[in-house]
Simulated scan of single mutants.
Amino acid sequence: MSGSVRRFLRDNGLGLTFLTLFALAVIGQAFAGHADFNNQLAAEDLQEITLGEYMTSSDFAVDLMENWQSEYLQFFLFLFLTVWLVQRGSPESKSLDKVGVESDEEQRVGPHAGPESPRWAAAGGLRLKLYASSLGYVMGAIFVLSWLAQSITGVAAYNEEQLRQLQAPLTWGQYVLAADFWNRTLQNWQSEFLAIASMAILSIYLRQRGSPESKPVGSAHTSTGVEG
């Protein structure tokens, strides 16, 4: 392995590792979901389907989308709420005296931008306004699109089951108001909200040495916005 490849792997280890774990989890979900789906078909005396057919089915897609939309909702809300809300003693919060969008000087934008700052950070007007919240906007857009995809694949999967049971299918509008859709949605949302609250609160008192998500081991419990 060349030095440049080793350097690339080292410099991008966090992203590459999580992308690999993501791919492995999707593959595992596909095999487990395929087996479970065929078990349901067998119980109803219906013909089983192949792995490829399952992975292109609405049943597989809705399971993916309902998890994706909840994750991106978590990121979207966390990004925007942490602008204005703080948690004393948590490294997940900024300092208590920095509530709000902060000054141009603190954010190094406009005339305060440096030579290595992104070009749009040095710009003014609409370009700067868009770039200044671009991460939140993109996370919000991905959430909306994945939520829409969940609703579309969800109604298709739900109607397939309805037809197998000789029951009337629902329209998209009816499904979005149905208990099945909100049961799928809310069980994912509550877990994401609990995870964020747990991280913000437990990190006040507990430590993980060397992690930027934790305060230094010797930091006071009241230290806020300090990362290790």
Rank of each mutant, 00 (worst) to 15 (best):
V155K: 00
Q47E: 15
D104V: 09
S133A: 11
G140H: 11
L194S: 11
S191H: 05
S214K: 03
N67Q: 13
H221E: 09
W84L: 05
M139H: 06
G33K: 15
G28I: 12
G33A: 05
L170S: 00
F31R: 07
S93G: 08
S203I: 04
P111H: 06
D63A: 15
Q107T: 12
P169R: 02
L148T: 05
G140K: 05
Q87Y: 06
V226A: 04
Q150E: 12
E48H: 07
T224G: 00
K98L: 11
P212G: 05
P169W: 01
F75Y: 13
F22R: 03
N159S: 12
L19Q: 05
E160D: 15
L81W: 04
G89V: 09
Y131L: 01
Y158D: 07
L163D: 04
E106R: 14
R184L: 04
G52Y: 13
Q40T: 14
L24V: 11
V62H: 08
E161P: 02
A179E: 07
P118M: 12
G15H: 04
F31A: 11
E48K: 08
L126R: 06
S214Y: 10
F31T: 02
A43P: 05
M55P: 05
E44L: 15
S203R: 01
I142F: 05
A113S: 11
N188K: 13
F31H: 08
A23Q: 03
F31I: 10
G100I: 05
S219Q: 11
M1I: 08
L46D: 03
I49A: 12
R10G: 13
L163M: 07
N183Q: 09
E161F: 06
S219L: 01
A61K: 08
T17F: 13
F37Y: 15
S146E: 10
V83M: 12
V138E: 04
P212M: 09
V217W: 14
F78C: 02
Q208G: 12
A179L: 15
I27N: 02
L206K: 02
Q208V: 15
L186Y: 02
E71M: 09
T185P: 00
K215G: 04
T50I: 12
R209L: 07
V155G: 02
A35H: 13
R7G: 07
Y205K: 01
N188W: 06
V138N: 03
L202A: 14
F75H: 06
S191K: 11
G125N: 13
G173T: 10
K94R: 14
A61E: 05
L126Q: 05
W182Q: 02
S134C: 14
M139W: 08
M65Q: 15
L73T: 00
P111L: 11
T224N: 03
S90C: 02
P91M: 02
W68T: 07
T56A: 15
Q174D: 06
G52P: 07
R6C: 10
N67F: 06
S151F: 11
G228R: 05
V99H: 01
W182P: 00
H221R: 15
D36Q: 10
D180S: 04
G228Q: 13
Q162R: 13
V5C: 08
F60P: 00
A30I: 12
Q47N: 14
